[in-house]
Amino acid sequence: MTDTEARAAILDLMADYCHFIDDNRLEEWLDFFTEDCVYKILSRENEDSKLPMELMSCLNKNMLRDRVLSLRQANIYNIHTDKHVLGAVRVLGAENGVYRVRSNYAAYQTNQDGLTELFGVGTYHDRITFVGGKLFFKEKIVIADTFGIARMLSTPL
């Protein structure tokens, strides 16, 4: 695969990732991750102070599955729809078939009155890998500039 083809595949993955959250297809969204994936949402405040506490931390795909199960079966949260707007995607490099990718996001939430609020902005720090010719997130670290979480952090960023 050429660099151009790899880049096009990465862009597709990034776009699908956002749209599957926004379309509330979270069970299928899980398929974008490897079994040994790491998914974390970090607050910029803690990052800047080198403090380890996360806002959300899934250390494998099972923990991510549990998040989705809990959202579906147990949690009660503000009724809303999500909308992600992805900024330009930077492919920073590749080592041993793992691409380091970085991009900014803006996440909006629209409530039942049809009013939309910016929920947060931040940066995705991703490690993306090919398995069987298909791309997966091996690691997705979301650094939230908006670490003052409005209401609650329910659906993933």
């Binding site: 403090l51 506490m53 670490f147 609650m152």
Partner: peptide, 11 residues
């Protein structure tokens, strides 16, 4: 040992 902070805005 302080491990970090979280902030939640409640309306």
């Amino acid at each position: 040992k302080v491990l970090g902070y979280q902030r939640q805005r409640i309306f």
